[in-house]
Write a protein that binds this DNA or RNA. Structure first.
Length: 480
RNA sequence: CGGGGCGUGGCGCAGCCCGGUAGCGCGCACGGUUUGGGUCCGUGAGGUCCCCGGUUCGAAUCCGGGCGCCCCGACCA
């Protein structure tokens, strides 16, 4: 368990992050380079994320399915930009069953290709459309540098794949799913995100358009937290996904894909965490409430535990995820710190005094020290907790939003942008530059275009780089 | 792939320069003590010192070779 303070965020943010991930018991190192073991506590957070998303997917008519881990190498090569984008990071199986395979098998980096191939069989008529499929799976991308949750060689995610009759329907789906990601991020993860479109350079390999939700971490770096792609007819043509229209004419489908990964766990850590550890939004917290019993001598224990057990079932009955810390060896002070490290939103302290006075101490994780503590009556404690959890959920979101907004500036010139970005902040600037200009900016400032936000100021301005008239502003930031 | 660092009980490290058969903190087990903000004391378990080879009476330590990992950059959800 944790026994000393972690490295402060202000001192070394990545070190802080790594320490938190291990000390909050989210993950453990794996024997394979670039992979991690997701421990139960970390996995429960992922399960919360899965639950929140899956519910939304189902509500919008999507069904889950599962496609194979292995993809024939030739499939990957069918869509020109797709190969180019993914080849460098593929893991390939060349041997199996004791002999060399006739055709190497790629471990999926994403499944557009296999799913596209399947779709071409499944879809015959316009009556088969739209086809709305989602898959929960693992994928492998052999990244050069990895960090737990943010970028690992193998990661868990969901990938949605849909096929539609028209471009507009596909576009509508692409945007709907982006909205779902944003809604999940804001409502469940308490992470304020900015919706926008990716630049040509940052677009998914093989997509017509890529949309993204971008979040600001506590070190002000940007984290692409979910993407939704309108694939146009690129994959439909490569995999022959056609349908017979009402007028008896063959037409290619329009497809989309969208994904969100275990990276979101990292986003939660880096958006809300502080120097004492994790701060989990109640909606995703494996334990929303932890009860720490306090007793001096053994004769006090039965009394205290009686109350604790009673409150536990009362809180449980109210649909709140509660955990009682029954460990014997540790002092209350140790437990306080331990649960703060793990980010449990509310701690309930029950000691002899509370038993006597019919009280309980509630301590909220998002407000440090005395200020975050309050006495409440044991009667109706569930109601008090419910209100408190809602307040914490809202406060974490507000806190993150205020932090983000403080660190985004509108800039009018390239020099100004440079200054803002070099200070670690985000810059909003008019842009009409070329791919090459974008690369230059990256070279010179370290920042990339995170997106062209949907929320545009309107009117027009002059591009910070080229000085030419521009219709849109872009967000620039250093990113993970 | 370029630059830097490191491989010693589960984790973090010392020992290496100057060879003599391995130690500290945390964690773990047991006993006691304590418990309203990281209690304290005692006892104990646990190690192919990354690998291979060489030098030597003797190698964690010296020499040669190899492997692995981490950090910073380029690539990326």
């Amino acid at each position: 368990m944790s026994e000393q303070a972690v490295t402060a965020q202000s001192e070394d943010f990545s070190r802080w992050y790594n320490e938190i991930v291990y000390r909050a018991d989210l993950a453990a190192p794996s024997p394979v380079r670039g992979c991690v073991i997701i421990k139960p506590y970390g996995y429960e957070i992922w399960e919360g994320i899965k639950g929140g998303l899956d519910r939304r997917f189902k509500a919008t008519g999507h069904q889950n399915a599962y496609f194979p881990l292995f993809i024939p190498e030739s499939y990957i090569k069918r869509e020109a930009q797709h190969v180019e984008g993914f080849s460098p990071e593929l893991a390939v199986v060349t041997h199996a069953g004791g002999k060399e395979l006739e055709e190497p098998l790629v471990v999926r980096p994403t499944s557009e290709t296999v799913i596209g191939e399947a779709f071409s069989d499944w879809i015959q008529s316009y009556r088969d459309l739209p086809l709305l499929i989602n898959q929960w799976s693992n994928v492998v991308r052999w990244e050069l540098r990895t960090r737990p949750f943010l970028r690992t060689a193998e990661f868990l995610w969901q990938e949605g794949h849909t096929a539609h009759a028209t471009h507009d329907e596909a576009e509508e789906e692409t945007l709907q799913m982006l909205d779902i990601y944003a809604d999940f991020a804001v409502e469940d993860a308490a992470i304020p995100v900015i919706k926008g479109e990716k630049s040509r350079m940052e677009r998914f390999a093989g997509a017509l358009r890529t949309y993204t939700i971008e979040a600001m971490m506590r070190d002000k770096r940007a984290l692409q937290s979910g993407t939704s792609h309108n694939l146009g007819q690129n994959f439909a043509k490569a995999f022959d996904i056609r349908y017979l229209a009402e007028n008896n004419a063959q037409a290619y489908c329009w497809t989309t894909s969208w994904g969100l990964s275990t990276r979101m766990v990292g986003a939660v850590v880096m958006t809300h965490g502080d120097d004492k550890g994790l701060r989990l939004p109640p909606k995703l917290a494996p334990h929303q409430v932890v009860i720490v019993p306090i007793y001096r001598k053994d004769d006090q224990k039965p009394l205290v535990m009686e109350t604790v057990n009673r409150l536990e079932s009362q809180i449980n009955a109210a649909g709140i995820r509660v955990h009682v810390d029954r460990r014997e060896g540790q002092s209350p002070g140790f437990k306080f710190n331990d649960w703060e490290m793990r980010g449990v939103p509310v701690r309930v302290e029950i000691g002899p005094k509370d038993v006597e006075n019919n009280n309980a101490v509630l301590a909220r994780r998002d407000v440090p020290g005395r200020e975050g503590k309050q006495f409440v009556s044991q009667d109706g404690i569930a109601g008090a907790l419910d209100a408190l959890l809602n307040a914490i959920q809202a406060n974490l979101l507000e806190d993150a939003r205020a932090f983000r907004d403080r660190h985004i500036s509108d800039v009018g010139s390239y020099d100004e942008m440079r200054q803002v970005v070099e200070g670690g902040n985000w810059a909003r600037a008019w842009w009409n530059g070329s791919d090459e200009d974008e690369l230059t900016v990256k070279d010179e400032t370290g920042a990339t275009i995170r997106c062209f936000p949907f929320d545009q100021p309107g009117g027009r301005g002059f591009c910070v780089k080229t000085g030419q008239p521009a219709q849109k502003v872009a967000l620039f930031a250093k990113a993970y």
